[in-house]
């Protein structure tokens, strides 16, 4: 994922593939060229941020002056097993069933 200034190409098609991997996605081959072009278009537009002097400016943590919210540590009823599994794509022995994780 090396940033390059050549032709204002901030990310190559290979970079896009790598970003997709990090995102647990794939970019279908038919979309890759246009996707990369539009991705670069957006990133190039972000260059305007370089014109702003943000020295000493704190990043926004919260838009309103609020602080941590605490509550008493009391056990409350949660969802039932039946509810939690209700929308699962596959269930086995009261658990979520998934394909093999380790070969």
């Amino acid at each position: 994922m090396t940033a390059t200034a050549a032709n204002n190409l901030k990310v190559s098609q290979d970079d896009v593939e790598h970003i997709a991997q990090l995102s647990r996605l794939t970019v279908p081959a038919s979309e890759r060229e246009k996707f990369t072009e539009q991705f670069n278009q957006i990133l190039n537009y972000a260059d305007i941020l370089e014109h702003i002097d943000t020295t000493g400016i704190q990043p926004t943590a919260h838009v309103l002056p609020v602080s941590n919210v605490f509550r008493e540590d009391i056990v409350k009823p949660g969802s039932t097993l039946e509810e939690v599994l209700a929308n699962a794509p596959a269930v086995h022995n009261d658990g979520f069933k998934v394909p093999r994780v380790i070969e």
Partner: peptide, 26 residues
């Protein structure tokens, strides 16, 4: 999702995400 993954990724976080959060303050 991919745009977000990129601007938060190591090496690009400061230039994009942190910068944007500073501009948000402005």
């Amino acid at each position: 999702i991919m745009l977000g993954t990129y601007v938060l990724s190591s090496g690009y976080y400061d230039a994009y995400y942190k910068k944007a959060m500073q501009v948000r303050t402005l």
